[in-house]
């Protein structure tokens, strides 16, 4: 396989990138300045060399422990469980949460052969042994995310004082009621609040 073909093939394996886009990216790099392409290659090299899962929480970081685990201003008594490290960025952007995180590295999916042992759950249970008062389960509201939440809820039942919460579900802000699906509207109804 030619060098060009092999780069197109590599780009094409990335999520959301089809063959056409892979070709465009490849020729874009070839047409541009060599140092631009080299910077991309070096950036990839560098994340591979430096970034590791945090031994404490599973977040991907070039620091060990990661920036959230070492930040003493973040409350270690509140732990928010997410499926992927990339979910942390979304929660951080809200600025609402000042506790620590725990990254599972996926969700339960028997169809994909993913059970509890494939997820970063054992370490979570260890962390709960000391000084955690609230566990916030922020797995996705997908079929698999919900089942993972149900599993975690059961798995942490042996910590009697622990408060376990789940992120609320309902209508998206700026969303239109008529375009929401029945399940979402039903959830929003059961989660309605006094005004």
């Amino acid at each position: 396989m030619s060098a060009i073909e092999s780069l197109i093939g590599e780009f094409g394996r990335l999520p959301g990138i089809g063959r056409k886009t892979a070709q465009r990216l490849t020729y874009h790099l070839l047409k541009g300045r060599p140092e631009d392409a080299r910077r991309l290659a070096e950036a990839i090299d560098r994340v591979l060399a430096e970034v590791k899962p945090c031994a404490e929480c599973g977040n991907l970081s070039s620091e060990a422990p990661c920036e959230y685990c070492r930040n003493s201003r973040r409350d270690p008594a509140q732990v928010c469980v997410v499926e992927e490290a990339s979910d942390i960025a979304a929660i951080e952007a809200s600025g609402r949460f000042r506790g620590r995180y725990h990254v599972l590295g996926g969700h339960l999916s028997p169809l994909d052969g993913v059970g509890p042992d494939e997820l970063n759950i054992a370490r979570l249970l260890e962390r709960l042994e000391v000084g955690v008062s609230e566990l916030i389960i922020a797995t996705n509201p997908s079929v698999e995310g919900e089942a993972t939440a149900a599993y975690l809820h059961r798995a942490v039942s042996r910590f009697p004082g622990l408060r376990v919460t789940r992120l609320a579900r309902g209508l998206p802000v700026g969303g239109d009621l008529e375009y929401a699906d029945g399940v979402t509207i039903a959830e929003a109804f059961s989660g309605r609040r006094e005004m």
Partner: peptide, 23 residues
């Protein structure tokens, strides 16, 4: 959900079935 629950049943992993039920 049904496909996941049935797969969990086929794999026979006890405790892994019920987490799909509420879904």
């Amino acid at each position: 959900v049904l496909a996941q629950r049935n797969e969990a049943l086929r794999q026979g992993a006890t405790g892994m079935v019920e987490v799909w039920t509420e879904g």
